[in-house]
Design a protein around this nucleic acid. Structure first.
Ligand SMILES: [Zn+2]
Ligand SMILES: [Zn+2]
Ligand SMILES: [Zn+2]
Ligand SMILES: [Zn+2]
Lengths: 147, 147
DNA sequence: ATGTTAAGTGATATTTATTATCATTTAATA
DNA sequence: TATTAAATGATAATAAATATCACTTAACAT
């Protein structure tokens, strides 16, 4: 597969615009986050890169995620159990569905979201700025395995 | 105001049923959680009780919350910033609206929730078991203060 | 190409919230 | 009132994320 990593290019451009250097370590982290296949954790990213980049430090992964968060280019999903997962592909808040077995995370399209937002504002008189909507369950492939 | 703390009584009964002792410390923690005014944090509970119970240990608050969680009598709300808040009044999952200024947390009634649950199941083929729906914004009183 | 320099990295120390440990105390029952 | 398992208080241990700092390097100018 070719290297037309559009989302990755956008992130790199944003980094340059803000005067940040493009190091090999940073580039490797961005590439993974731009895809965000399954919404990787810090450890996922670290392990993926370490295979062909043995000198990579865990601190560098943390630092770069922090930077990308501050630029609004990655969405952090902190879970109640303390684990964190990242979405650099779609960095604006959106609902997530998490499989509690295999830890897969998917992005559902929910038409009912707009209505719910309206209802929240109406019900509470809050000025809503952000949201975090997570549904936990078991994915179809884990369900099939079970039998 | 009188002491018809229905929710607190339910929690105490559940504790007795499961063979747990009712200590003064435990009772004080349960009383606060049963009301869950604004969804208190561990520190909130600790400070509230310490005023007229100076010997109270922070570990005891943690221990009792752990126990009440295991009995399904308190809902833990862990937030991305690492903070935790508790609802012992309505211990089943429900949406929350959080003021990012004063940290107040309220329970909105959202008719659109049922529809969204259906949509998630349909869209993703997951068997949904749990959810966590948070909306972040600024409450009306904080908005008023701002001007 | 080479040198310069501010930013980035790697290794490690620190921080902070929660859990574990353990000697002492106490609620529940007889 | 005595018995005993459970709970408490004080503190140690744990673990994930952040801070520190000496060394390295990407970006830019020459
Ligand atoms: Zn699964
Ligand atoms: Zn996502
Ligand atoms: Zn407020
Ligand atoms: Zn609540």
């Amino acid at each position: 597969m070719a290297d037309h990593n559009k989302r990755g290019d956008t992130i790199i451009r944003k980094l340059r615009e803000n005067g940040h250097k493009i190091t090999p370590q940073r580039l490797a982290i961005v590439k993974i986050l731009a895809v965000s296949d399954g919404h990787p954790s810090v450890e996922d990213i670290y392990e993926q890169i370490r295979t062909d980049f043995p000198t990579m430090s865990l601190a560098t992964v943390y630092r770069n995620i922090l930077l990308l968060k501050s630029l609004g280019e990655v969405l952090e999903l902190g879970f109640p159990d303390g684990s964190n997962r990242y979405d650099g592909n779609k960095p604006v808040p959106h609902p997530h569905v998490i499989c509690i077995r295999c830890k897969k995370i998917v992005d559902p399209v929910l038409d009912s979201l707009d209505e719910m937002k309206k209802e929240v504002a109406l019900e509470t008189d809050f000025k809503i700025l952000n949201h975090r909507l997570d549904f936990f369950g078991i994915c179809s492939s884990c369900m099939a395995e079970n039998k």
